[in-house]
Amino acid sequence: MSTVKKFLFLNRKAPYGTIYALESLEVVLISAAFEQDVSMAFVDDGVYQLLKGQKTDGIGMKNFSPTYSALGDYDITRLYVEKESLEARGLTVDDLMDLKWEDEDDDWAEKDSIIVVSSAELADIMEQQEVILSF
């Protein structure tokens, strides 16, 4: 398939409590196989998906947060996190997982996958997309 489109996966829900976050991640991983231009955005309670130190034993759910660390290997290297959503929840980027990707065009330098953007910047990013799937 030769067409390459800009796909953005917009994540708005907390990682547990509903299945949206988990099933969103399943679509994201599948999308990688189609060699599209894929990025992700995290807004509202969706920012909790990237929180480090998640422990789910007490609620009987599988902790799927380690999967986010693998996204770089699937060439999904841009995870936009909305600044206002972090601030409203008393979070900073230091509360999030340290997600990295290796840039093969830059001698495999490790780079941050998480990009904190303002609401206005995220609006611009969304404007540039061709397909936005929101979860």
Partner: peptide, 11 residues
């Protein structure tokens, strides 16, 4: 069918 059908639909 699989999730690929959603991505392919988007393309």
């Amino acid at each position: 069918s699989g999730l690929g059908q959603l991505i392919e639909g988007g393309i």
